[in-house]
């Protein structure tokens, strides 16, 4: 207050600087948080929270939509979630692990975002490929269109880890395990391969952040880079839930004059 009254110009400058900074609003992260990832016994259930938030893993912003929820059972078949619900801060669902082995639980899909100017006014639009042709002018002042291709996932294993559900789909950005994602322990570095449209994503920046952010002062984000074969090695900071994230911006949207933003996020549990 003192500062603003004495130096109004300075205050304006501070405000401008604040707007330019990567504010938390730009760090909205999509994630799923499973109740367990390593399970024993025959009657195993996993309950899952899904949300978009700044801090990991806290429900503080909006629930994640589950329209693109796709669960792959160990034998490669698709299965349905149960008890889906949308709360104020988070969505939730249950899955029953009827088969032994590894499950892949993903929320994936794509959507288009467009911005342009109409009669001097900025316009923003968001929607499906189908609605795009209908609702966005083919030619407009400053038209910029991006295809967002997103995958948010986690893995859970009942009994012995298996690989069948982990086969890449060769669409967008994906993680292929070298170290099995349900065989992670704090003292052992893990290796993963990142693929973009089925090919190794070389030189890709991968960010890994431990959960429990509220109880420490710094993000302690690990920023890693994939090698020419798309491989990345993660040295865990300790046991816990981690969020691994990467994204790529390129022109491979398959649509003329449309950029693509492919993103990937996985929640990985590291045991002591």
């Amino acid at each position: 207050m003192m500062l603003s009254r004495t130096f109004p110009a300075c205050r304006r400058l501070l405000l401008a600087a604040a707007l330019l900074l990567p504010l938390p609003a730009s760090a909205h992260r999509g994630w799923m948080l499973p109740s367990a990832t390593v399970l024993s016994g025959d009657n195993s259930w996993v309950t899952v929270d899904a949300a978009v938030s700044n801090d990991l893993f806290y429900f503080e912003h909006v629930p994640m939509g589950l329209e693109g929820l796709a669960i792959t059972a160990p034998d490669g078949s698709r299965m349905e979630a149960e008890n889906l619900a949308r709360g104020h801060y988070r969505s939730t669902f249950d899955i029953q692990l009827k088969q032994p082995g590894t499950y892949r639980v993903a929320v994936a899909g794509d959507g288009l975002m467009a911005s342009w100017r109409e009669n001097g006014q900025p316009r923003r639009w968001r929607g499906t490929r189908e609605a795009f042709a209908r609702e966005v002018p083919a030619k407009a002042e400053g038209l910029r269109v991006t295809l967002g291709q997103r995958r948010v996932e986690f893995f859970a294993t009942r009994g012995k880890p298996t690989d069948r559900a982990l086969q890449p789909l060769n669409v967008g950005l994906e993680l292929v395990p070298v170290t099995h994602p349900n065989d992670l322990v704090a003292g052992e570095p893990a290796q993963f391969r990142l693929l973009l449209d089925g090919k190794p994503a070389a030189g890709l920046e991968v960010s890994v952040i431990a959960g429990g952010r509220r109880y420490r002062d710094a993000e302690q984000e690990m920023t890693l880079k994939t090698d020419p074969a798309g491989l990345v090695e993660v040295k865990w900071q300790g046991p816990g839930m981690y969020w691994l994230n990467a994204s790529v911006r390129d022109g491979n949207s398959g649509l003329p004059n449309v950029e693509r933003n492919a993103s990937y996020a996985a929640t990985l549990e590291v045991l002591p």
Partner: peptide
């Protein structure tokens, strides 16, 4: 066999052999 649900808590054995 509800008791088997907690076998994974014998954590190291579960990873090395139990699973």
């Amino acid at each position: 066999a509800e008791g088997e649900k907690w076998l994974k808590d014998i954590r190291q054995w579960w990873r090395r052999a139990g699973r």
